[in-house]
Amino acid sequence: MKRRFTLLALVLVAILPAGAARAASIGVEAFGGVSIPIVQDDTDQGSQFGVRVPVNLIPLLTVEPYFGASALGNKSVTLGAVTYERDGGDVTAFGLNARLGGFSGPGLKVFPYVGIGSHTLKREGTADLTKAGYNFGLGIGFSPLPKLSAGLRGEFNMIPLGNETSRKFANVTLGVSYNVLSLP
């Protein structure tokens, strides 16, 4: 896990231009949407909510500490004449995204992003599991009012479990962010 964080840090360092200090912006974004399990027979689609704190220090890069929580849907399986239901489980995550471009300002923005985080999977009858997870996706955002932005994101989220298996999710979220601080 340490190696993976180091890898991400190296990528971030590589894309930071030297002497890039300029105007800084800090925002707060609330988001919500759906989390769709990919090739998982034992859990179903659920909801996802969370908060991101976009920090834009250089023109081409915004970093986003985030917290997200998913409540996955229960899975029903019919065996003979009886239908059984399994708790879909919850996933909580906190981590850091790096996205191209700023998050505030006028106009339509399309931005790819990549992130890494600590994910905890909880499920009734099963011990909690905390693992590093990765995500990448594409967002589209616009600013209808000064300091206010809205955006739609589609992302792929993967949580390796060890033993060469993982839990994978497609997440689609809508978010609204407010620019709380802008420095010249």
């Binding site: 190696r3 993976r4 890898l7 991400l8 990528v11 090739v39 998982q40 027979d41 034992d42 859990t43 399986v77 990549v114 890494i116 990765y134 993967m158 390796p160 479990l161 060469e164 298996t165 993982s166 839990r167 994978k168």
Partner: peptide, 15 residues
């Protein structure tokens, strides 16, 4: 980052 995780991308949970 993905390669560092092995072949986890092509796994599934099968009932």
């Amino acid at each position: 980052s993905l390669l560092a995780t092995g072949c986890v991308l092509t796994s599934a949970q099968i009932l």
